[in-house]
Nucleic acid binder design. Sequence first.
DNA 1: CTAGAATAGCGAACACTGATCGCAATTATG
DNA 2: CATAATTGCGATCAGTGTTCGCTATTCTAG
Lengths: 229, 229
Amino acid sequence: METEHTSIWLRPARGARGRAPEHTRDGIAAVGVRLADSVGLGAVTMRSVAEALGGGSASLYRYVQSRDELVALMVDQVNGEIDYSVLAGTDWLADLLALGRQSRAVYLRHPWLLATPAATGNLGPRAVDYLEHALGAMQDLELDGHRKLEAVGVFTAVVRLLAGTEIEQRGTGPVDRRRQLAAAAHLAGLVGAGAHPHLAAALATPPAEPDADQVERVLTRVLRGLLGT
Amino acid sequence: METEHTSIWLRPARGARGRAPEHTRDGIAAVGVRLADSVGLGAVTMRSVAEALGGGSASLYRYVQSRDELVALMVDQVNGEIDYSVLAGTDWLADLLALGRQSRAVYLRHPWLLATPAATGNLGPRAVDYLEHALGAMQDLELDGHRKLEAVGVFTAVVRLLAGTEIEQRGTGPVDRRRQLAAAAHLAGLVGAGAHPHLAAALATPPAEPDADQVERVLTRVLRGLLGT
DNA sequence: CTAGAATAGCGAACACTGATCGCAATTATG
DNA sequence: CATAATTGCGATCAGTGTTCGCTATTCTAG
């Protein structure tokens, strides 16, 4: 009977005795990330990852209890791409915006992150680092701890949302174009039918190009409202 | 060669000639929703839904091109649970909060919504209705259309986030409890190690119970920041 | 140094999944 | 009525996550 470790972050990476493992968690995650970046998250199967590692698919289960855990490793890995040395520590808003800017870049580099469950609990070590630095940026604000945690949650949710719409519009593949045209046709039909006047009005003004500046603009307003001042 | 309808919302529900279909889209969606509510989204398979409808799984593909489309039908179906008659139309913030409150209720009734991709484009008719009413609530605000659309996006993202954390903490099953304990142990370990002082500080204050009031509080601040005043 | 125990790698298989094909039954249209 | 379009569906396919049992390796205890 084994001790059941629910989370991969609490389970030791390797056993104390016995043969040494041939791979590391980071190495496995890196392979998964590379695959997802190039062919999509759907192509990240136990077999494909194992083959890229030069082994059998059953061996992967020595490192990971399920495919979901593998994806969790991948998510935490890309969370490690953020550089905290750019944070000046003098202006909380500037630091949070710097974090948001980098976070957006991570999403654009790894669009499959959007297909990943936005977990708030059971964060990996690198996600915890991110949280720590986000809280650090707000250290001079006189707010309750849970209010700050709340703010970080909203912050990351907004970044995720904006990156998502940006990625949707940026898709240049034939499938993406088809989808965009279909959506446009759908909305045009609805607006033309006249049953949705407010939507028609909102769509009348040309939409702003989504970019890093939009992210900063929205984040600034949201954070000011949320944190006061 | 058929005309390829990318979106299910642009495809006619039934052909003009030939035998009449035995089911409706809404009926199929209802079966899926019932299944997902009781056994989870993972239990919504083509076979299980078809069996609940009293037919073969291949027949489902006469209504739906893929499982994802089936899920899209389900999502749009629960979007129909929102009652817009409660909107007074006199105070934009009050109306938006009323929408948020109902939206939260929908999430709590159908937790599997969180496992669903948060699509911004290609909305179903009921999602479009929601959007229309949200925009209607803001009709007296003098803002660009795309700014209002932006606000609705952030709005729904925040509701989704808060409902998600609420559902995570509310889970009472043995598996959920295990997960919660594991997460708590993980954080305790990190805090004890001393490498995350800001996180430790934030966790020192007891977290506020997530509920409908929290949603309104956060939404109010976010919307005030986003829409000005 | 040796015996035993714990661990890693993995071929083969299992249960299931989404999806397709071709045919028979049904129904509106010309 | 004949034709063409459409539906229902049994059978089947390729592919998935995961498990089992075995062998090979490597650390620890004596």
